[in-house]
Design a protein around this nucleic acid. Sequence first.
DNA 1: GTCTATGTTTGCGG
DNA 2: TCCGCAAACATAGA
Length: 286
Amino acid sequence: MPELPEVQTVINDLNEALLPPVIITGAAVFWPKTVAECTPSDFDAKLRGRKIQHIWRRAKYIVIALDNGLNIVIHLRMTGHLLLVKPETHRDKHEHVILYLADGRELRFHDTRKFGRFYLTSDPDTFFANIGPEPLSKAFSPAILTAMLKGKSRKLKPLLLDQNYLAGLGNIYVDEALWEAKLHPAAKACDVTPKEAANLYRAIVKVLQSGLDNMGTTLGTSAANYYSVGGRTGRNSDKLQVFRRQGQPCSRCGALIEKLTVSQRGTHICPVCQTVKPVVHDKRCG
DNA sequence: GTCTATGTTTGCGG
DNA sequence: TCCGCAAACATAGA
C-alpha cells in the first residue's frame, strides 16, 4: 500500500508527534512473525529504556533511530499502519506490535494482512546496501536515469517497481509517472531515448512531489487503505490521472483509460498517449 | 456463499 | 537476465 510519499508522510507525522524525544518503556508483540529474526522477549529487552532520537526514511522503510545506535526498521508492506494512541484505546485484533512510551502513549502497528515487518539493525548502511537511489535526492538525475536504463532489456514497469533499481516507487506512482512521461509500461528500458529518460525523470519527481504535497494517496475508506498516524487520510487520490481510472477519459487526449496486466501487476494507461515503442534492437540492448 | 483482486516483497523454476 | 508463478495473509467487492 504505502509508497514513498505515504511512508514519508507517516514519518513526518511521527517526528512531529514524538517531540520532545520520548523513551520506550517496553514492547509487546502479538504476532511474532511481524518481528523478523527476533523473539518477542528479545524485542522487548532490546528496546526497553531506549530513547527515540529521530525517524527517517529509506525507500519504503521507516527507520527509528535509538540513542544506543540501534535502529528499528519498519516496512508497512501492503496494509501496515502506525498509530499513536492513549493506553485505554481498545486494541484492535489487527494490532500486532505495541511500543509503550514513557509519556503514556502507545505506538501501535496495525496490519490486516500481516505482511509488514519490523527489523532491528545497528548498521543501516549494510541493511540498505542493495537499495537503489532515492528519486528525490542528488543521487538521481536525468543523466543517472539515462545511464540506469541503458543496456537493460526489462520493461519499464517492473524496472521502476524494482527497489534495487530505484527506491520508493510502487504500483500507483509508477503508473502515474509513465502516463506523465507518455511512456508505455511494457516498453523496453533500452529503447527509451535520453530525451524520453529526462521526461521520465521529471515525471517521477512530479508525481512523488504531488503525493508528498497532498500527504499521500488514500484510495478507499476501509482499514486496509492508507492513512497516517492519527488516522488522517491523504488527498492525492484526486490528482491521479490513470490509477484505477479505467473507463474514464484521459485528461490530455480524451481517450478512455485502460487497465492491463504488465509483469503480473495491474497497470493503467492511456492507450493513445502511451504508445508501445517499436523494437529498435533485434535482440538485446547495447 | 463464491470467486477475484489487492497499494509489497521474496524466492523458485524455466 | 528476465519472466511467470506462488507465497506470506485478510478483506472488500463483484
